[in-house]
Design a protein around this nucleic acid. Structure first.
Lengths: 236, 236
DNA sequence: CGCCCTGTTGATACGATTCAAATATCGTGG
DNA sequence: CCACGATATTTGAATCGTATCAACAGGGCG
C-alpha cells in the first residue's frame, strides 16, 4: 500500500554523521573531537515524527535523549484528575529528555506539534562521554539553564493576563522561533493546554485576532502576524 | 535605640563554618574536602533577611550565589506593563542565583517571604572551585534539574484550574515543605502573584477555606491544614 | 458516501476582576 | 505603653471574561 511508503518516508530512521552535522555547533557535541565519537558505541540514530506523534511517554523505558534538528515538541504533565497541561515546548537545537542524565524515567509525555526531526542519543553513551569529557558538563549546564529561563518565561507570559494577551504572546514567541513575521500554529486544544484556557476560548480568541486583521492565515495554521500590534496587545 | 539592635540582630552578618555546617550534606559543598575550602578566597558569609526584604535585584551587581539555610524566597519577573509575577519559590537547601555560573546578571528580583537565613557564595570562588573539582558540576546539574522539575510543577499546579484549587495546591505544597500539617503563609498579594490571581481573590479564597474549616489559623498567617480535604479539592 | 475529528459559533452560567469602602494589623514615635 | 498613621486584609456590589454545554460546518479518511 502507498500508505506504508509514506509511513516509512515520514518516520524515517537513519544514521547521523555528527562530525558533519549542520547544526553541530548548536548541539551537545559542539566541542567534541573525532576521537570522542569513538565513545559512542552505536551510531547516532535519526528519526522523523509527524504532528501529533508521540516521541516518548513517562512510562516508557528511559533509554534515549533527543536533539531536535527541526520542528516543535510539547512536554505534557497531568493533574491527578487527568487533565493535561503543556508545561514546556522545545524547538530546534533543544535537547529532549535531559532528566535522564540524573533520573531513570522521563518526566513528561513528549509529542511532536509540528513535523519534527530528531537525533537519538543513548543515555548510557552520553553518561560515559561526560565522565571522560567534563567539558560536556558545562554544555549540559547551559542547556539546563536555558530550559529554566524558558520555564520562567512560560509562567510569566503564558499563564498571566487575559486570553487575548496570552495568545498574542504565544504568537510572538512562535514567530520569534521562526525568525520572521510568520509562524506555524497547531491544534486549538494544544493552544489551550499551553495557555491554561479551554479549547473553545483558544479558538474564539484566534478567530477574533483574524477578524481584527492582527493575524492573516496564509495557509492552514500558518499565520502572518502583525508584530507591532500584537506586541501592543501582549504588553497591554 | 533598641530598634538598631534588633536591626543588627535580624540582619546579622557572620562567618560560616562550612566543614561543620549542619546542612552541608544538602548543599553544594557536600563532596568537598577540607583542602578544597582553601579555594575559597574569602570566608563564607552568612546573613538573615526579614520577610519582605530584598535579597537581590536584576540590576544588582552579580557577585554572589546564596544557599538558603532556612526560610522561603520568591523570585519575581515583570511583564512590560510592570505587573510582577512570582515565577519560582526557593526553600531550605535551595541555591539562589545559579544563573551566575553562566550569565553575568541575576534573572529575577529575589525577596524573602519568610525570615530567611542564607550563606553567601562569591561566584568567582565557585567558578574557580568548579574548574578544579569537576564533581561540582554534577551537583550543580542536579540543582538545575530540581529547579526545572519545580518549574514544571509550578505551571501544572499553580497556573491551572480554579482559584480554590490553586490555593489548595499551594497550601499542600507549603505543608509538604514544612513536613507536617501546618504551614506558614505570607501576604495575599504574594499569594495572588504566585497563583495568577488578584489580591482580592486570593483573600476571598483563603477566607472561604477558613469558613469551611479546611484550614485553621493557629497564629497570624500560620495555618493548620486539613490535608485530606484540601487534597480532594486540589485534585477536584 | 458517510463518519469522525477538529474548529467555529451561540447562549447561558459561573467565577474572577474591578472599584470602592470598611476593618484589621503593624511599625513608629510620642 | 499607648496612639497614630500607613499598610494590608477583608468584604461588598457590579461588571467583565471565561467556562460550559450544545449545535453545526468543514475536511480527511476509511
Amino acid at each position: 500500500m502507498s500508505h506504508k511508503i509514506v509511513e516509512l518516508q515520514q518516520a524515517w530512521t537513519g544514521i547521523a554523521d555528527c562530525m558533519n552535522c549542520t547544526i553541530r555547533q548548536s548541539v551537545l557535541f559542539a566541542g567534541l573531537e573525532e576521537e570522542d565519537f569513538a565513545e559512542l558505541h552505536r551510531p547516532i540514530g535519526q528519526r522523523v515524527y509527524r504532528p501529533g506523534e508521540r516521541i516518548y511517554s513517562m512510562n516508557d523505558e528511559a533509554r534515549s535523549l533527543f536533539t531536535i534538528r527541526s520542528g516543535l515538541v510539547k512536554l505534557v504533565q497531568y493533574l491527578p484528575n487527568g487533565t493535561g497541561r503543556i508545561v514546556r515546548m522545545l524547538k530546534k537545537t533543544d535537547v529532549l529528555g535531559l532528566e535522564l542524565m540524573l533520573e531513570d524515567a522521563y518526566e513528561h509525555d513528549a509529542y511532536a506539534l509540528h513535523r519534527t526531526e530528531v537525533c537519538i542519543l543513548p543515555v548510557d553513551d552520553l553518561k560515559r562521554l561526560s565522565r571522560h569529557k567534563p567539558e560536556l558538563y558545562h554544555v549540559l549546564m547551559a542547556r539546563w539553564h536555558k530550559a529554566l529561563s524558558n520555564s520562567d518565561r512560560w509562567v510569566r507570559d503564558f499563564s498571566t493576563g487575559s486570553a487575548k494577551q496570552r495568545v498574542a504572546r504565544l504568537l510572538l514567541c512562535l514567530t520569534e522561533y521562526e525568525g520572521g513575521s510568520e509562524c506555524q500554529l497547531f491544534g486549538r486544544e494544544d493552544l489551550g493546554a499551553i495557555l491554561g484556557l479551554t479549547t473553545e476560548t483558544a479558538s474564539r480568541t484566534m478567530a477574533e485576532l483574524k477578524r481584527q486583521g492582527l493575524v492573516a492565515e496564509v495557509e492552514p495554521n500558518v499565520f502572518n502576524c502583525n508584530l507591532p500590534n500584537l506586541t501592543r496587545i501582549a504588553e497591554n
